[in-house]
Design a binder for these strands. Structure first.
Lengths: 358, 358
DNA sequence: CTGAAAGCGCTAACAC
DNA sequence: GTGTTAGCGCTTTCAG
């Protein structure tokens, strides 16, 4: 049983085939130079006696060393992409055991040209595998088609592009997450008005922005279940607190009856901190992503629900998929992996630890 | 950099110490038989040049083979403990790479004597490590004290005992999960009455039953925030559907105004299926655990919220902790690991996949 | 207490 | 096409 199966070595296979270890190894790794007949026999025997290669021995003997390059937005401490970076760091330890080195190339998520440059640098490095967050769709497509041509496997995280060359994708179902947010916010009596605060991303085409999928999901839910509910919108700036206070003051003066608020980007804390500052406690705010400042809002009661994804888990699994592809030549069970949307409240936030391994 | 550090081998250490590989290995594994001076030198060099053992080579050369025994309740398909068992199976693959075999010993969670017998069988097997769900506290204590005496590491999952010999614990914060359930159920206007359906466990002392902690947490929240809210109770039987229908019919006849329901065990579906059957759709039900039948209730709308734990993740991490202890002699970062309480609704349930690695 | 040496199962270079 | 062989870095006898 169990125990025995572990003891079957490549030598056993060779003997049973009447061939040598070398030949068996060749078919194991599709390294060619093997006659059709030998190949058949080897595969048959492997199948029959249930041979499983010893990964430890394989890794030890292998001289191969791979480089995996990750292409993600740069970040300031506490911002969303820091979570992703954390996940990458975690995955490095694992990758090392497989002779895979991981390096990160950053770009400015608000600057398309910086993405292009980063992509060029990436290609110059000639990586054996790539993981990327394709914020600028068109340019990302240029990159990935080159990778495809070079036969370099790549996985998308966070969002993905509509093409067919990627090894896997790990991310949150954006549309559904908006739908979920709506159910949490408006699924109760007396919600006739909802406020949404957004960023104006300037020249961005909206469809390039994953958060607009969220918005669509949200609107769909409202239209479906509470068609009479009105949605108000206003625009904030990510890095201009004083401006935001003015906008919010003006908004709530104009709309004193709006009690329900939603944000689709990761900065719900812009609102929650405003509410705290103004001593407003009768608003219900739903937001996204487990930034420290958002979690704080949860604890203080100024955020009611936070919908989060296990961002570290996403990249960790993304990298795991690549490793398994490179080491075992196996594709992931699912190509598109929509990861769980977790609902955080004041009462479970403190038990929501990062769980890379799960 | 990175690359170089991987190339430092035990041989380098030996050379720099003016000793042999053998001696270095001895201090690496505290295998004694080494002079104080040699030991000091070796440790110093390791420290200085940052030597990290190559786990692949180590595992390959090692002749050690360990057995890890898991002691958990037996289950019927679809029941809670099946999730745990699934996690164990998943962990087996990983354990195999470390020359660790995992086997499971089952007991009947409603029969104390069966636990005792299982414990005896376990000890007879002389395992090198143990993972257990200590349903019967007193008897589990007997077991673990023997394990301690034998110097066999063990970890608790699901619930833990108040003692000090365990390597780690992975589970859900039961009291807090009840508190959370209450916030989800009653934190809104007009909840004046709540129904709770329980099982009568017969001779069980209530404190042996983790679900009663949940109940306490629930009551605490209600008492704190909605002291005027009344809690009704009634008892069902896990395996007697007809009896349950009668009890529920009678209950709702007596209490037509009770619109909010909570269960603390894993069988919310007993209620949700009843509600569906009777075509009752104006009740709000909150329950626990991601049994398939509970998830079904979520989808059909007869369950509003389900609070779940990543049970598979718990055992997987529990086993990982043991592996790391046995292989690397490292204790887990945290001894008590309260894992996240996830909130499931109709709108995120389908994206809540099992995520062993996270 | 320490060193030498024989593998662990697999890879990869080389010879045939 | 195929077999042979020398390691990969570490563990584990076995002498001394």
């Amino acid at each position: 049983m169990e125990n025995d199966s572990r003891k079957i070595t490549i030598k056993d296979v060779a003997k049973l085939c009447g061939l040598s270890k070398g030949t068996v190894d060749r078919v194991l790794h599709n390294r060619g130079e093997v006659s059709k007949e030998s190949r058949r026999r080897v595969l048959e025997v492997i199948q029959r006696i249930g041979y499983k290669p010893n990964i430890n021995a394989s890794l030890l003997a292998s001289k191969k060393h791979y480089t995996l390059l990750c292409l993600i937005p740069q970040f300031a401490p506490g911002e969303y992409w820091e979570l992703i970076y954390t996940g990458i760091n975690r995955a490095m330890e694992k990758a090392r055991d497989y002779n895979i080195g991981i390096e990160v190339i950053f770009y400015d998520q608000f600057d398309r040209e910086s993405f292009r440059q980063a992509a060029r640098r990436l290609l110059d490095r000639n990586p054996q595998a790539v993981m990327l967050a394709p914020i600028f769709g068109e340019d990302a497509l240029d990159l990935t088609s080159t990778l495809s041509a070079r036969d370099v496997p790549y996985v998308y995280i966070d969002s993905k592009l509509e093409e067919d060359g990627y090894l896997a994708y790990f991310g949150m179902p954006m549309y559904q997450s908006g739908y979920l947010a709506a159910s949490l916010l408006v699924d109760q009596p007396d919600v006739r008005e909802v406020a949404n605060f957004r960023f104006d991303r300037g020249g961005d085409r909206p469809q390039d922005n994953p958060t607009s999928c969220r918005r669509e999901g949200f609107m769909a839910y409202v239209a479906e279940k509470f068609p009479e509910c009105r949605l108000h919108e206003d625009f904030l700036k990510p890095y201009d607190p004083e401006y935001n206070v003015r906008v919010l003051d003006a908004f709530f003066e104009r709309h004193p009856d709006v009690r329900h608020i939603v944000t689709f980007n990761s900065r719900a804390h812009l609102i929650s901190e405003y509410l705290e500052k103004r001593g407003i406690s009768d608003r219900v705010l739903v937001g996204f992503d487990k930034l420290a400042r958002n979690l704080d809002g949860l604890r203080k009661g100024s955020v009611k629900f936070l919908i989060t994804q296990r961002a570290e888990a996403q990249v960790y699994r993304g990298i795991t998929a690549i490793i398994e592809y490179m080491v075992f030549h196996t594709a992931p069970a699912e190509r598109d992996n929509f990861m769980s949307m977790d609902i955080l409240t004041k009462y479970n936030v403190d038990y929501y630890t990062d769980n890379y391994e799960f």
